[in-house]
Design a protein around this nucleic acid. Structure first.
Lengths: 197, 197
DNA sequence: TATTATAGTGAACGAAAGGTCACTTGTCAA
DNA sequence: TTGACAAGTGACCTTTCGTTCACTATAATA
């Protein structure tokens, strides 16, 4: 029971912080959204900042669990088409999973205020996808699916535009479908450029 | 005199909003940073929100003046090397100009809260550079400096990675030099891929 | 059964927020 | 010289914020 409420507080905090930012969120509203009165929250966290820190802890742990280690690297696609499919699958999850979307928004909003948010933002927005596709492209080059080139550079050239469109989805959700189509078109264009026929 | 203070208030607002966000900024501090007492600010703007709106007006006007119309399109580079030089020149301005950096941070932080900030963010982060380099690449293809391809797609593939590294500079300024080197390396890699020898 | 820890309530608190207002000061036009 | 107005001050108001605390209800424990 205790733990349940504690987690529900974090979930509500993620929702409110990602919408209104840390400074723009107040404990009254947060509590109310859980059917609690605000003093009830203080039975589980000693302060607003403690909630923020716990949420960041959870986000960091979540990232480590889901994307952190080599076990989570995707299988190397065995065809050029499979690269697009892998990409679209990942994009669809990342753009439609509410929790991931909120996490990204939160990191976007708070990256300049909190050092740990800053680090995690860079991983989410830049190095995470980059490392993953460096691995993918290295494998694809070994299998002669991609022309020989610097896999890190290719991964950067591939993931950064995709990342930009994911950010667009966060910012203007009504453009999501369009952005996803653009990502697929970009993926195919990339393959047309670097793929080995 | 009146106008002077009015503008100084906007400058201070840009600084504070871009650092602490709208909700995290208070009029007392803002006034103090100008050597004023807070009621003095209300002689020039009727509310905090009015300051925000005036700042956004200014930002929108500034963008229109500096990057908005066809007059501001850069000359089409006459060589592949000139493309990298044009790029690096633009990147250096955009990364080192304090006002532009603060504007970008502000839009990053407030894009989910304000509709006009959202629009301007998309222009700053995505469509602005994109349109500009669509023009550049169209010209370079006509001059057979770049291989024939979809100029919009190439512009997107070129500008999005650069944009990602500019965001990195905003987030982690100590990585600025490194990021700029990466941009140059990326530009040269891009040319190696799409340039006509 | 008696006890005790836990989760939640509601009133209250001090600090800080945005905003108002009567007042002073300095500048310039009539 | 005087009157009017713009710019700035400082005290004050109301609201909202984060936080505390004495208290209650509940459910597990001894």
């Amino acid at each position: 029971m205790a733990n349940d409420t504690k987690e529900r507080i974090l979930a509500a905090a993620l929702e409110m912080f990602s919408k209104n930012g840390y400074a723009g969120t107040n404990i009254r509203e947060l509590s109310a959204s859980l059917g609690l009165v605000k003093s009830g929250v203080y039975k589980h966290y000693e302060s607003k900042e403690a909630i923020w820190n716990a949420l960041l802890d959870e986000m960091i742990a979540y990232y480590a669990d889901h994307f952190g280690s080599a076990e989570h690297l995707p299988p190397v696609p065995d065809s050029l088409e499979a690269l697009t499919q892998l990409t679209m699958q990942m994009v669809n999850i990342t753009v439609h999973d509410e929790k991931i979307v909120m996490t990204r928004k939160l990191l976007t909003i708070e990256q300049f205020r909190d050092g740990r948010a800053r680090e995690l933002a860079t991983r989410h927005f830049l190095t995470g996808l980059n490392d993953m596709f460096t691995h993918v492209f290295t494998g694809m080059m070994e299998r002669r699916l991609l022309r020989q080139d610097d896999p890190k550079m290719l991964a950067f050239a591939y993931t950064a535009p995709i990342s930009a469109l994911i950010h667009l989805c966060d910012r203007e959700p009504e453009k999501t479908e369009d952005a996803i189509r653009k990502i697929e078109a970009f993926s195919r264009h990339f393959i047309a450029t670097y793929g080995v026929k």
